[in-house]
Amino acid sequence: MKVVILQPSYIPWRGYFDQIQTSDLFIFYDDVQYDKRGWRNRNRIKTSSGPIWLSIPVFNRGAQTEHIPINEIKIVWDRPWNHEHWNSIKLAYKKAPYFNKYAEMVEGFYSGKPDLLADFTIETTIQLARTIGIDRTRFMRSSEIQGVEGTKTDRLISILQKVGATHYYSGPSARDYIENDKFADAGIKLDYMTYEYPEYPQLYPPYDPQVSILDTLFMMGEDTLQTIRR
């Protein structure tokens, strides 16, 4: 069984969905420490003025997020950021060929006021995955798995053993810290992803591959998955 373990992210880029469609089981690594400088609560979209960040405000001042797991991070609702994000998306992509096809679904992402960041990002990621045609991958959260032990590589292997994984796919940046020999000792095959994808038309040149999956979806529609598969 092929397994991927990744921290939940906000409207991730297509490489994230490549890992989802590669796996039989995709595990959201939601019980590790929140990273204020990562992709947990932010991502980029293209606009006529260049790429912009969409960031979900969370309780991240001072020590409030120190040693707090992702699945306990709360969203701040001191301003209507959800409407701001949807308005930015609508303004950026209203001329995209498939905007009208998916606009209602994406607008629905921003219709509520979720309390926890992970609940929001995980739910929207799963819905996007199903929408682009990834229908066989199963999803779960690492926080649902009982009896996980160790830290770093040992913890990954413990999770993989608990779910019966035979094959683990990791992002390329993990080469710097994953202890490869431990996977061999555990009898789990380890492979690293290669993020190489074809270009596709975008509204505002130059081409930028490092943007949210929403860009691909609004531009490519039903062919979105084909721009991900290699």
Rank of each mutant, 00 (worst) to 15 (best):
H67V: 05
F218W: 12
I27C: 05
N100W: 13
K46N: 10
Q146I: 08
L117I: 04
G150L: 06
N60R: 15
H67S: 11
Y169A: 06
K74Q: 12
Y102P: 01
F139W: 04
G108W: 00
E107V: 01
Q127P: 03
S9Q: 15
M220G: 07
M219C: 09
Q21S: 14
I73L: 07
Y29W: 12
V4F: 01
H83A: 14
A96S: 11
D115C: 12
I145F: 11
I20C: 03
D176G: 09
M220R: 11
P198L: 03
R61G: 13
S88K: 15
T216I: 13
D208Y: 14
G147C: 03
G62F: 04
M140C: 14
L156H: 04
Y29V: 01
F139D: 09
P206H: 10
Q33L: 06
R130H: 09
S170K: 05
R130T: 02
T131D: 12
P57H: 10
P205H: 10
N71V: 04
W13D: 03
I52M: 07
T153N: 04
K101F: 15
T224N: 09
R230I: 06
S170P: 05
N41L: 06
Y195M: 13
L128F: 14
I68C: 10
Q7A: 09
Q202S: 05
H167E: 15
D35C: 07
Q21L: 14
F183D: 04
Q7D: 09
H83S: 13
I228H: 04
A96R: 01
D24T: 01
E144K: 02
L54H: 03
T137W: 07
M1V: 02
K36S: 12
K162P: 01
R229I: 15
G150V: 03
D30Q: 11
A174C: 02
P51C: 09
